[in-house]
Amino acid sequence: MGFVRMEENVGIPPKSLFEAMDAYIGERAADGRFVDGGGLYGTEDAVNFVVRKGEVTRVDGPYAEGKEVVGGWAITEYDTVEAAIADQQLFAQLHADHWPEVTVVATMRQISEGPEEPTD
């Protein structure tokens, strides 16, 4: 799974990035690597539920303490971790090429196939 983190309220990405991402996602959807993904709205209407010491507290956005927010996500499938890493780097490069004035962190995480057995 890939995540894109960036500062909030940096504006709308340039049209060239949208076009490059359409081509990038289209290629991966055509060959079955792209499973699902999308962009996210800002934190102005986000809701967090924080569990702390057995208590649940609701915290509504926006969140002044957050410098970066997750702006988008994608679920992709690859035969190897190396192939996934190489493609995530290509994804990051699209942002560098088409929106160089914005700092973007493109993170790749593996999705767990199931819960680990609990230890007592």
Rank of each mutant, 00 (worst) to 15 (best):
V4T: 07
D22F: 01
P100A: 13
G42R: 05
K67G: 00
Y41F: 03
S16G: 02
A84C: 03
R33L: 08
R58A: 08
M6F: 04
A64T: 13
I85M: 08
I111C: 07
F3G: 01
K67N: 00
F91E: 02
A92G: 12
H98T: 10
G26Y: 01
F18K: 11
H98P: 00
D45K: 04
F34C: 02
E27W: 07
V50Y: 01
N48G: 06
V59A: 13
P118H: 10
M108E: 09
T103D: 09
F49S: 05
R33S: 15
G42F: 01
M21Q: 02
D120Q: 11
A92T: 09
D22K: 02
I25W: 08
S16I: 06
Y63I: 04
A84N: 06
S16W: 01
T103F: 10
V81T: 03
V70M: 12
R52M: 07
E68Q: 07
F18H: 12
D22V: 06
E68C: 06
M108W: 14
F91N: 09
V104G: 00
N48E: 08
V105E: 06
V102P: 01
T107L: 07
G54R: 02
A84L: 11
T43G: 00
T107Q: 05
G37I: 05
P115H: 12
D97C: 03
G54E: 03
T107V: 13
E55P: 00
G2P: 13
G32Y: 04
V47G: 01
V81R: 13
A84H: 05
K53E: 14
A92D: 10
T107Y: 03
F18E: 03
R33A: 11
V59P: 09
A96Y: 05
G37R: 05
D87M: 14
L40F: 05
G54N: 04
A74V: 14
Y24G: 00
D22A: 11
E27S: 08
Q88R: 12
M1N: 08
H95C: 03
T107P: 00
A46I: 04
W73R: 03
G11C: 10
I85G: 01
P115Q: 13
V56M: 08
A92I: 12
A92C: 13
I75Y: 14
I75Q: 10
V81G: 01
E82V: 14
G11H: 12
A86T: 09
F91R: 10
H95Q: 02
G54C: 08
E65R: 07
E101R: 14
V59F: 08
F3C: 06
G66T: 15
D79M: 14
R33D: 02
N48W: 05
G38H: 06
G39C: 03
A23V: 12
G37L: 08
S112G: 10
E7K: 15
Q93V: 08
V59Y: 02
G38F: 02
G114V: 07
G26V: 02
P14Q: 06
E44N: 02
